[in-house]
Design a protein around this nucleic acid. Structure first.
Lengths: 155, 155
DNA sequence: TAAGATTGAGTTGTCAATCTTA
DNA sequence: TAAGATTGACAACTCAATCTTA
């Protein structure tokens, strides 16, 4: 089915047949994140971006990441990371510590309060992801999908 | 806590094994859209959001969509859609037309200038999507993936 | 009363410029 | 000179309130 004709479900395909997957990918992402954002905001007054910082920090051994590294992991600009950490620091969930070995550098460190908060908050987004995402992804396909996603956006 | 153990590649998995796919999905989306955004902005001074409006309008028969419908398709708030169309209208790429049958309603209509602009601009994002997304998605898997993405974020 | 749409106020992110240390 | 990080100025989106027509 190469014709522009019967486009039914997947309109807006930029006149290109293959673009259906891409549009579906975009829309899925937007719907899910929007929903998770609302739910997390409503139940715990936290944004997904803030939650992601706590998750990233809690996932590394010593609960700390350099600002640049954090920005890279969040796929955020450096200034964006600065401001995000700034807000979390104001709430006492993250602490800023300057780096000994390179005095230009700063660590973003998860505080105990931050870890506690993450523990209380996490169930909400976890349930959301399970229900809105994982439930629709066949477990057998997950390893292959993960590898595919990991390749996307590189080159 | 089941043990922070061997998390290797997919850290930040929220202490949950299955979450690797989810994190990979999030990161892939962020990387690709960020790159497309920069490229489109640099080459044609247009945002991805603006481009998406033109695409959506050009994809429907009479090149027009009600504001609400447009917002839904873009997965954007209604006010977000209003402001986006406002900007495009200022550039003459979209025209606002009030609706006859329901005088509360407004059509966003793609102008000829808008269609022309879309034609000139499109090659850039299309190449980007081909290179950063489609190239990594096996053609045989695309129909199944499209169906999967279409289900995500519902329920 | 409700639905379509817009507006005012506020939040969050970006870029470009800047400061500091390597 | 360049790299890490922050700041100022600004762009784009969200919610809540509002206006208009159903």
């Amino acid at each position: 089915m190469t014709g522009p004709a019967i486009d039914g479900e997947h309109q807006a395909s930029d006149r290109e047949p293959r673009l259906g997957v891409w549009r579906a990918f975009l829309t899925a992402h937007a719907r899910i994140t929007r929903s998770l954002e609302h739910e997390l905001q409503a139940t715990h007054g936290m944004s997904l971006a803030e939650y992601d910082v706590l998750v990233q920090l809690s996932a590394v051994g010593d609960r700390r990441l350099r600002m640049s590294e954090l920005a890279d992991r969040l796929v955020l600009s450096r200034s964006g990371a600065t401001r995000l950490v700034e807000r979390l620091a104001a709430e006492g969930l993250v602490e800023r510590v300057s780096c000994d070995s390179d005095r230009r550098g700063q660590w973003a460190v998860l505080t105990d309060a931050g870890a506690d908060r993450l523990g209380r908050v996490a169930p909400t987004p976890l349930r959301g992801v399970a229900r809105q995402f994982l439930a629709h992804v066949p477990p057998d396909d997950q390893p292959a999908l993960t590898r595919m996603f990991d390749r996307l956006g590189r080159s």
